[in-house]
Design a binder for these strands. Structure first.
Length: 107
DNA sequence: AAGGTGACTAACA
DNA sequence: ATGTTAGCCACCT
């Protein structure tokens, strides 16, 4: 099982209506300091998978997409559609982590 | 084979 | 509080 597959697996565990950070995904996948590599994995997600890629954001609560095939606006609207309040602030979309961050140990 | 890059982050200054 | 630095690791020249 390669790194990408582990990342998929962990991201699939993020419940609807919550978000996780890149570092968090990396740690759960068994690569505690590989947040950047997680970003690469997400960038390469194929279309039409059941992986909720939109639920992964930066540790500061910002959507870190800039000029990719899936723009930040798309991620924001996907999050909003499942109840996560993503608001545009100074050009970037922000999410209240205190409220929406996924706690893997808590139900 | 080796070095640069990046959907990152925690630690400093 | 804001800016910089140094790790991290998979990809791509």
């Amino acid at each position: 099982m390669n790194f990408f597959e582990k990342v998929y697996e962990v991201v699939r565990r993020v419940p609807k209506g919550r978000v996780a950070t890149y570092g968090q995904i990396a740690a759960l996948a068994g690569f505690p300091r590989s947040a950047r590599a997680v970003g690469m994995a997400l960038r390469a997600f194929p279309e039409g998978t059941d992986v909720p890629w939109q639920r992964v954001i930066s540790s500061k609560g910002y959507i870190s997409i800039e000029n990719f095939e899936h723009p930040a606006e798309e991620q924001a609207s996907l999050l909003i559609a499942e109840g996560v309040r993503a608001v545009r602030q100074q050009g970037v979309f922000r999410v209240n982590l205190q409220k929406y961050l996924w706690n893997p140990n808590k139900k």
